[in-house]
Write a protein that binds this DNA or RNA. Structure first.
Length: 125
DNA sequence: CTGATGACGGTGC
DNA sequence: GGCACCGCCATCA
């Protein structure tokens, strides 16, 4: 496939779309899978989403398993609510147990079909 | 073109 | 455990 000129942001959003219901992935994980240079890129990509997007942005959390704060505190509340509705449990300290709810990444099949290649972190072809 | 701006994460103290 | 520092670089004004 390939050839189409899609931005790295779009590639990351494509990955976010396949995070299963009830599971969460970290910003770093998304950036790594999509081939972005830094975990921050994943956050920037999500920051540009429209309010009515169909991208399951709520399933992306930080490396500590927490909901990253942003300008609007209501947005973080909404994210927690959406995740709880998916059955994701929050510990008393407000974090998600990534060992239990963390996503282990796309199937190799999917990666190949979408022309994704997992590279060592920070090693671009 | 230049500079500001981000929903992060690893490291060191 | 917490906190500050710094690297990260695609967009946009």
């Amino acid at each position: 496939m390939g050839g189409e000129k899609v931005s790295i942001y779009e590639r990351m959003l494509l990955v976010v779309r396949v995070i299963p219901f009830g599971r969460v992935a970290t910003y770093g994980q998304i950036a790594w899978i999509a081939g972005a240079a830094s975990p921050r890129m994943a956050g920037y990509a999500l920051g540009g989403l429209a309010a009515d997007t169909d991208v399951p942005w709520q399933r992306v959390v930080n490396a500590k398993g927490g909901v990253s704060p942003r300008g609007d505190p209501l947005a973080t509340d909404r994210q927690r609510k959406l995740l709880m509705e998916e059955g994701v449990r929050f510990e008393t300290d407000g974090r998600i147990d990534l060992d239990h709810f963390g996503w282990d990444g796309p199937d190799p099949e999917w990666l190949e079909a979408n022309d994704f290649t997992l590279l060592p972190w920070r090693a671009r072809g």
